[in-house]
Amino acid sequence: MSMLYGFLVLTVFFIAGEVLRVLLALPVSGGVIGMILLTLLLMARGSISESLAGASQALISVLVLLIMPGVVGVFFVVDEFAGQWLAIGVALAAGTLLSVLTTLWLMQRFSGPEDGSHE
């Protein structure tokens, strides 16, 4: 029962996100707007109900299931992007290498030693 209540809250936030997206013509998906709204509300309240935490965890634990239909499609677009796979592969490999390097370098440069100095 209580899990269903949490699910109701999540769906209401999703609809609120969709409403804002359409009315304000935002280029962001309704789910993301709902997520930002929920995060802000939780930060303002400083606490979270058990039903909402439970429903969120349940949904997140089956995320793999929800995105599977999209992932399966990868095997069916091989022909569609023929001739571009080299560009895609190089962009993914080199792009990820560079962005990991950028992240680690920046984080290390701006953070102090592991203990102390970051207070």
Partner: peptide
């Protein structure tokens, strides 16, 4: 894909749910 559509519908609320661990 069409048969599995109702799973995809749940992606909206599941995206909202990501706000909980973020908080």
């Amino acid at each position: 894909r069409e048969g599995a559509q109702w799973l995809t519908v749940l992606l909206g609320p599941a995206t909202v749910a990501l706000g909980v661990p973020l908080y």
